[in-house]
Simulated scan of single mutants.
Amino acid sequence: MFETTRYEVGRRLKGSVYLSVAISIYAGFIVWYFTVLEDVAIEEVFQELPPAMLEAFGIQTLNTIEGFLGAEVYNFVWVLGLGLYFAYVAGGTIASDIENERMDLLLSLPISRARLLAEKFVSLLFPILTVNVVVGAAIYVFASAIGEPIDPTHLALTHLLSVPYLLVCAAVGLVFSVVASRAALAERGALGVVFALFLVESVVGGADQYDWIQYISPTHYYEPTPLLIDGSYDLIDSGILLVAFLGLMLLSQILFQRRDI
């Protein structure tokens, strides 16, 4: 049972560690940089920023460690960076095997297409959970070290509720992976769609006449800054993301079952 998942997790182990360490180092730099800016009138700078930039990066305040991390780490690295990363990685899960002619060998084993697709996708949970646990713990330690401790409940919720969002981004990549014959096409297509959805929410969705369009973007349903600052969240948003994830998974299964390999 789950032989494919174990094999894929083994392949992703080193990359997951490198990713977690790299983001932790960046987060440590941001926490240190916050101490450098303490003597600067940072709130005045905040008020002079263009409204579009404030909206795009979820900037609510920059004079608290929670608001600063929300703008510099979570809305930039988590929402955009990791969303693109997991869409890209998922884009190569099936398409790379098809392109390299490994899929025929895999399907010759006593395993159904549905199970193969599910096990390959489940392996993505490992890097998603690893980066959340490692970076979340690192940020808590860094913030406490400078005398600006973050509420551990708020921090835990910020990371926990990012999982449905990242699953949706990865599922977008999976849809491209089961329809493309080349991994590069699937990866680029997934990147383009996730980035376009980010722009839809952060730029187009801010216009009154196009207010409705923001609801098609997964970024609309995950806002890390309010979670960090006061722990405010809506479970309905997470539920919508989970429904979207399941819908994309079902679509991937249907397309993969019908595909001629």
Rank of each mutant, 00 (worst) to 15 (best):
S177R: 00
N100Y: 10
I30Q: 15
F176Y: 08
L107R: 02
V21N: 05
E119A: 11
L82V: 05
A22R: 12
A41S: 13
Y165K: 05
L157S: 00
D211G: 06
F176A: 00
Y18H: 08
A90E: 00
P224V: 08
I229N: 02
W78S: 10
I111H: 01
P110K: 05
G81Q: 07
F195V: 01
F126E: 06
R12F: 11
A27N: 00
E119K: 13
E8L: 00
L235P: 10
L174V: 11
V79C: 08
G136V: 11
D234E: 14
L19P: 12
V243Q: 05
L241W: 10
E3W: 00
G189A: 00
K14I: 15
W78C: 02
W212S: 14
T93F: 09
I236G: 02
L62C: 03
G58F: 05
K14S: 15
F34L: 01
Y33T: 02
N132K: 02
G58Y: 06
L13G: 10
R12P: 03
L109F: 10
G205P: 01
M1N: 09
A87N: 03
F126K: 02
G28Y: 07
V31D: 05
F142C: 06
W32G: 11
L251V: 14
Y233S: 08
L242D: 06
T130E: 09
N132W: 08
K120Q: 04
R6W: 13
L227Y: 06
D234L: 08
L228I: 11
F245V: 03
F46R: 03
I261E: 03
L161Y: 15
Y222P: 04
V200P: 06
V122L: 15
V36N: 10
T225I: 00
